[in-house]
């Protein structure tokens, strides 16, 4: 399955590269488990493109963050590979006029979920991995102790287990047959709900322990395709100075809630913030809560309709939800 998906991706990009200045996709990284974003700029690069459940990065941020992808040459477009979640980020960026749809050639990939590589390494006892193959629902890993058949399902990332939009919501070409969503909109907030079932003290203890481990490395912010303030982020500016350089809990708490509040009604739950956190803090949960509120109060789900206006980007005096 993996081979054929990658082959189809190669064929698709070969057919379209004449009209594209760059294609954003994934390629092999430093070992067989790790893929890295790949910027295809010439036909020779195409063979290095890969698509499989180890392709974990959301590539859409490169379109808007400096010095990202060069603007397309006259008459050309930028090609980008998107899974369902990534396509929602694209929609949000289009809505906010940060990118224009006309400049994009969107290669949509229906996605069955991506692997939580950290958990895979931790729970499977793998060491010195030599090769990885994906066959149907199995990850076949060859390491120092021989071949291991690992069920993909067991190692899917949390964001994928709660995914309800595995199929790209916008695309110019679709690489595969659409897949059945894993959850419904009702089930998508189970993790938030189970946290909320705890007492206030328990929740405070939970977040104190989790957020206290934050390094303020800002990986969560920089990996977020919708965190677009870049060099003007108030987490770092000294003028105005909202946060000090201290690394105590209040500063970390404030930073994460600034991050989340700036994404209210915008976050498309791609889960990159949580994936990239070196300290494994479940920071997407905060954004999930805000999205749950947005859904319940404003009946809006981010990143689905390029024509829609996100509720917090407009003002309606007759707003009924609040």
């Amino acid at each position: 399955m993996e081979a054929s998906a990658t082959t189809r991706l190669h064929q698709e990009v070969e057919a379209s590269i004449g009209r594209l200045s760059t294609v954003l996709g994934w390629g092999a990284g430093y070992d067989p488990l790790h893929m890295t974003p790949l910027f295809v700029r010439s036909p020779e690069d195409i063979a290095r493109l890969v698509w499989n459940p180890l392709c974990v990065q959301n590539l859409t941020g490169y379109l808007v963050k400096s010095p990202g992808v060069q603007p397309p040459e006259e008459g050309k477009k930028i090609g980008i590979c998107v899974r369902g979640c990534d396509s929602r980020s694209l929609v949000a960026l289009i809505q906010e006029k940060l990118i224009s749809r006309e400049n994009l050639y969107i290669i949509g990939i229906p996605c069955r979920g991506t692997v939580d590589i950290r958990r895979l390494m931790n729970e499977s006892g793998l060491s010195n991995i030599r090769s990885v193959r994906i066959e149907k629902d199995l990850l076949i890993v060859d390491d120092a102790n021989g071949a291991h058949n690992l069920p993909l399902e067991r190692f899917l990332a949390r964001r994928c287990l709660r995914c309800r939009h595995p199929n790209p919501v916008i695309h110019d070409v679709l690489l595969d047959e659409p897949v059945t969503p894993r959850t419904t909109a009702e089930d998508a907030y189970r993790d938030v709900e189970s946290l909320e079932a705890q007492s206030l003290d328990q929740r405070r203890a939970f977040w104190s322990v989790e957020l206290d481990r934050c390094l303020r490395c800002y990986a969560c912010r920089n990996a977020c395709p919708l965190c677009i303030c870049q060099n003007r982020c108030i987490a770092e500016t000294r003028d105005p100075r909202w946060l000090t350089q201290r690394v105590n809990l209040p500063e970390k708490f404030l930073y994460h809630f600034i991050h989340a509040l700036h994404l209210a009604g915008r976050c498309t739950e791609c889960g990159e913030c949580e994936r990239v956190c070196p300290m494994e803090i479940p920071v997407t949960l905060i954004k999930e809560k805000l999205n749950q509120i947005t859904r319940d109060l404003l009946h809006y789900e981010a990143g689905l309709d390029p024509e829609a206006v996100p509720p917090l980007l407009t003002f309606n005096p007759a707003e009924a939800g609040i």
């Binding site: 490395c217 920089n222 070196p278």
Partner: peptide, 24 residues
């Protein structure tokens, strides 16, 4: 080109010593 310009690599590095000084 892939770099996100976050600080993970430097914060988990045993040899990175660059620092900033601020008055709070």
């Amino acid at each position: 080109s892939q770099c996100l310009s976050c600080g993970v690599c430097t914060f988990v590095c045993p040899t990175c010593y660059c620092f900033s000084i601020t008055d709070e």
